[in-house]
Design a protein around this nucleic acid. Structure first.
Lengths: 190, 190
DNA sequence: GTCTATAGGTGGATAGAC
DNA sequence: GTCTATCCACCTATAGAC
């Protein structure tokens, strides 16, 4: 609680935004250094290699995301409400021309170091796991309907929302995401 | 009809695969040169700058794609059949760790030259247009159902399939795409 | 922890010979 | 059309002073 945000956190903040907009292969240490007003060498002290920085980015992003999902579980008990809040989180991500960090990295998957690939799949697995729980809950109390297993439906849902974000951003129009997510959720009864 | 494929076409073939796997920012003239066994300078003769190459890639990809859609319209008169064939085209794209060329580029949108951005949006617009026609047809003859306008549903559909491809590829599992697309199409009655 | 300086490599791109 | 040779900017990364 001493520093509101240490240097490593500020580095991650900038790198996160850069990856969300330009991709992992689309930014450099020089970009971060310029914005943070330090030298590139300083960055290497905190994150020895770009792969370390990338892996830390995913870990922190997932950590924040899971915290947000825990927040939903605390405040929202209705399965439909949970789904709508989940979709809304990704809607907020779209601000400033950003895209979901992990959706971006998924596109660059083939060029990522293994440490990042593993963490990336873990992120999506956790999305799937949480959504499957919500879908199961909604099926039990009759508020949500889906044709396949909760697991498969969750998997499809994650992909659909990631794709909706990607296209919405290409048109510079977040409302495209909102329209798409509303339609997708409507199919499930939410 | 003289040469089965001239040098420019072979360059595009290699570049297309590279973009589909590694992205526009993830490949270089050197990669193409090595595979085609020519020098980088030769490539610049056919495509002066990387932006020219990128724009040509999208144009050719869209041309091939629209030809495939025309082929569907010729052989398949049933709206549900058209939709299934459309989804199948993207399923075939997934071979060899590839992703839809334009889905890849959409992720890198912020870093693309304007000439590529314009063509990219055009590709998605054409997808949307064709799909909206199919959805309208299916609605008229009662074979397909959707809650929103054909246009909006088409838009959502394109994004969902692109997202499904991206995630399937991250898991190296094309069956993820097939499962997701089957579920998505089922919601529409196909 | 941050700096200067620099290494070693690769990026896209060009000039000019053949 | 393809080559050799070369340019310059940029990349990730390291050594060592402060």
């Amino acid at each position: 609680m001493d520093a509101p945000s240490g240097t490593p956190q500020r580095i991650l903040d900038i790198a996160e935004r850069l990856v969300q907009t330009c991709g992992y292969n689309g930014f450099s240490y020089a970009d971060i250094a310029a914005e943070l007003k330090v030298t590139k060498a300083s960055l290497h002290y905190h994150f020895p290699g770009k792969a370390d920085l990338g892996a830390s980015l995913i870990e922190r992003y997932e950590h924040h995301f899971l915290a947000a999902l825990a927040g939903i579980d605390e405040r929202e008990k209705d399965a439909r409400g949970k789904l709508r809040r989940y979709a809304a989180i990704y809607g907020e991500v779209l601000r400033d021309g950003r895209m979901c960090l992990c959706g971006m990295l998924a596109a660059e998957y083939a060029t990522l170091p293994e440490a990042m690939r593993t963490r990336l799949r873990h992120y999506f697995d956790e999305n799937e796991r949480w959504l499957a729980g919500v879908l199961k809950l909604g099926r039990k109390d009759g508020t949500l309907r889906s044709s396949g297993t909760p697991r498969e439906t969750a998997r499809t849902l994650v992909g659909s929302l990631e794709g909706a974000m990607m296209l919405a951003r290409s048109y510079g129009d977040p409302s495209r995401y909102r329209a798409a997510s509303a339609r997708i959720l409507a199919e499930l009864g939410a």
